[in-house]
């Protein structure tokens, strides 16, 4: 990533969009992961998943808090999380995929963590200090998430015949949702040009390496690169997001103006 200093005229609305993208990923994945609470296949997994969800919700507070600040219209992280409709959400489609069985949840986590890890690693060097600061803090958490999800993908891939089958199925099912992480648009180009974020395409090589390495250890087969779904980053989601939001936002919508 370029190390150019922050241009004073960097487009604040582009910055706002980026912060929604990264904040919404954390929010929606945190929501999905927290759905497991009390239902995981082992007590240690319940604890680890709650921990991951807790990290992601904490990250949401940081990213959406900064988004509100950058927007300058007085919206808080809570306002952004609870009072936007689906078309205003900017998360990638991968994180809103339903949990499925535990294997699918872990595979989704691994595919996301590998990318999230690289993104935050690059953002630690962002020319926008507030972004670099958040990246510094959250990178530690996400390094741990990647360690954990990678380890479990390997052990289950190279486990029993059934665990292997389930993990391969999860991988095949989620693969078409991975391409969206690496597609840039004019917002990315503007921010990457200013040294604020890495160009999405630039993370692809590192991600391919992390994934190929883990898949080879896990004895799983990387699916062929075919059609990739996208749309989340510009507000065009799957039907699942509406249901997530109707749960997530229920109290704020049912009792407007109430303080909790």
């Amino acid at each position: 990533m370029a190390t150019a200093t922050l241009e004073p005229d960097v487009d604040q609305s582009a910055l706002f969009e980026f912060l929604l993208r990264i904040g919404d990923n954390a929010l929606i994945l945190g929501h999905r992961v927290s759905e497991w609470c009390g239902h995981a296949p082992a007590l240690e997994e319940d604890i680890a998943l709650a921990n991951t969800a807790l990290d992601l919700i904490g990250q949401t507070q940081l990213w959406l808090g900064l988004a509100g600040e950058v927007e300058g219209e007085g919206r808080s992280a809570d306002n952004l999380a609870y009072l936007r409709d689906g078309f205003e959400f900017r998360n990638i489609l991968l994180v809103e995929r339903p949990n499925g069985d535990y294997g699918k949840t872990l595979m989704r986590q691994f595919l996301f963590d590998a990318w999230h890890y690289l993104l935050l690693k690059a953002l630690k060097g962002s020319a926008e200090k507030r972004i670099a600061d958040i990246a510094e803090k959250t990178f530690k958490e996400v390094s741990y998430h990647l360690n954990r999800s990678r380890d479990l993908v390997i052990r289950l891939g190279d486990g029993s015949a059934e665990s292997h089958r389930r993990m391969q199925e999860a991988l095949d099912d989620l693969w078409p949702y991975t391409g969206e992480m690496f597609v840039g648009d004019t917002i990315d180009a503007a921010l990457a040009g200013a040294g604020i974020i890495p160009a999405p395409q630039s993370l692809k090589i590192g991600w391919d390496e992390i994934v190929a390495d883990a898949l080879s250890e896990s004895t799983l087969v990387k699916p062929a690169d075919g059609y990739m779904h996208k749309g989340g980053r510009r507000g065009v989601h799957t039907e699942h997001l509406g249901y997530i939001l109707s749960e997530l936002q229920f109290l704020q919508r049912a009792y407007p103006g109430a303080v909790w």
Binding site: A50, A53, Q61, E247, L251, Q252
Partner: peptide, 28 residues
């Protein structure tokens, strides 16, 4: 856990997650 996905603010959600995680820890 029934209310984690419907907690009214991010802070309340984080507190509830931490609490339920503690309980799993107590079980352990």
């Amino acid at each position: 856990g029934n209310w984690i996905s419907r907690a009214p603010t991010l802070e309340r959600k984080a507190i509830l997650l931490a609490k339920v995680q503690d309980e799993a820890g107590h079980g352990l």
